[in-house]
Amino acid sequence: MLYQRGHNRRYQVADDEAILFQALQIYQRRFSRGEALTSPDKAKDCIQIKLTPFEHEVFMAVFLDNQHKVIACEELFRGTIDGASVYPREVVKTALRHNAAALIFAHNHPSGISEPSQADRTITEKLKTALALIDIRVLDHFVVGETVYSFAEHGLL
Score class of each variant (00 low, 15 high):
I49F: 11
S39T: 15
L131C: 13
E74M: 11
T38N: 15
A152G: 02
N66V: 10
L51V: 09
I123S: 01
P88A: 05
I81M: 03
E35Q: 15
R78D: 10
G79P: 03
D120T: 02
D41T: 14
A100G: 14
D82Y: 10
E57T: 08
I26H: 13
K126S: 10
V144W: 04
Y3C: 02
E146A: 12
H141I: 01
E35R: 15
A119T: 11
D45Y: 14
F31M: 15
A132G: 03
K128Q: 14
L37F: 06
P110R: 06
F151Q: 05
F142H: 01
H141W: 08
K42N: 13
V86W: 01
A119I: 06
K42V: 14
H56A: 12
R97E: 13
C73P: 03
V62K: 03
E125I: 08
V86N: 06
I113P: 05
L51E: 11
R5G: 02
L76H: 05
L133G: 12
E35D: 12
H141F: 14
F142P: 00
T52E: 12
E17W: 00
S39E: 09
F105Q: 07
I71D: 07
F151T: 01
E74I: 04
T52Y: 04
A100C: 12
R97L: 13
V148N: 08
V92R: 04
H107T: 11
L157R: 00
A95F: 05
P88I: 05
K128A: 07
P116H: 01
M1G: 11
L133V: 02
A152Q: 12
D82C: 00
C73F: 03
V148L: 11
Y11A: 09
R97P: 03
Q48E: 15
D15F: 09
A61P: 01
K69W: 05
G79W: 00
I113T: 05
A102P: 02
D45G: 08
I19G: 05
V13P: 02
S39H: 10
D16P: 00
R89D: 11
A100E: 07
V58Y: 08
Q67N: 14
S114R: 04
S117T: 13
V143F: 09
H7W: 07
L76C: 08
F54C: 04
F31H: 14
R5W: 03
G145S: 10
F151W: 04
T38H: 15
D16W: 02
V143T: 14
H7S: 13
D45L: 15
F31A: 11
M60A: 15
I19Y: 02
G79L: 01
P110M: 03
A72T: 06
K50S: 15
G34Q: 03
Q67T: 09
F151I: 01
F142A: 06
L156P: 00
S32A: 14
Y87W: 08
N66E: 09
D120N: 10
Q22S: 11
K126N: 12
S150K: 01
V62P: 00
L20P: 01
R29T: 13
G79S: 08
H98I: 04
I71C: 07
I81T: 13
E90Y: 08
V91M: 00
R9S: 03
R89W: 06
K42A: 14
H98D: 06
T122I: 10
G145V: 06
S114K: 06
Q4H: 06
K44E: 15
